[in-house]
């Protein structure tokens, strides 16, 4: 009994520590967002507005390929239209095709900024809302020496809407999330019920032979 308890404690302790001290867990929240802007970020209704702001301020350097939003130099060109037509994924053009089609323009961007400004399709998952909100609001404060200009400095509401848009690109929409939750509950419920059925079946099977072997 003591041994069993000891081993259970060891297992719980190890996985508990790994859970808490996960080296990949989200960065310690070094940045904060005022409550009112956090609400905007988490509200999907602002994503559409955010997209317009993004197109206005950000697309000269950044693209969001997973949502079919491309650089200003690419939008409207014949090349992009062709790429979209050939793409099997609707408006989404994969990196390999996009970068080879617009290699010249991207190279020019690299020359003026030192590196090609990244595509932001998954940036929300990589950095989180706290980082993004503060970074867009004041890039130099968060990452000194960065080439990103403070285009939206002093306009926290617009920044929040842009982050809301970035969030909507990275995370599945709330309807889809609800579906996944229901699917999860059904799967887990099914596993538990099937587990119980297994034990019940074993019991029934041995009823004919008076009892389970362990009860004999």
């Amino acid at each position: 009994m003591l041994r069993t308890l000891f081993f259970i404690f060891c297992a719980l302790f190890t996985f508990g520590v790994l859970w808490i001290k996960n080296p990949f867990k989200e960065e310690e929240k070094a940045f904060t967002i005022p409550k009112e802007y956090e609400k905007i970020i988490e509200d999907e209704r602002y994503a559409k507005e955010g997209k317009e702001i993004f197109k206005l301020y950000c697309t000269s350097c950044h693209s969001i390929r997973y949502d079919g939003v491309y650089h200003t130099f690419a939008e409207g060109t014949e090349k992009l239209k062709l790429l979209k037509q050939m793409s099997p994924y609707g408006d989404v053009v994969l990196r390999a095709n996009y970068e080879s089609a617009f290699a010249k323009e991207l190279k020019a961007l690299k020359e003026s900024f030192g590196r090609v400004p990244p595509d932001l399709s998954t940036i929300y998952l990589a950095r989180g809302k706290e980082y993004l909100f503060n970074f867009i609001l004041n890039p130099q404060k968060v990452l000194p020496g960065t080439q990103m200009p403070p285009l939206l400095a002093g306009q926290p509401e617009k920044v929040a809407k842009v982050v809301s848009y970035l969030r909507s690109v990275s995370l599945p929409p709330s309807r889809e999330r609800r579906k996944r939750t229901i699917m999860g509950i059904l799967f887990i419920g099914y596993a538990i019920i099937l587990g119980l059925v297994m034990f019940w079946w074993r019991r029934e099977y041995y009823k004919e032979k008076c009892c389970l072997p362990e009860e004999r």
Partner: peptide, 12 residues
Amino acid sequence: LKEAGIAMFFMA
């Protein structure tokens, strides 16, 4: 059957 039962709880 016993192990299948436990395996289902594990899967849960």
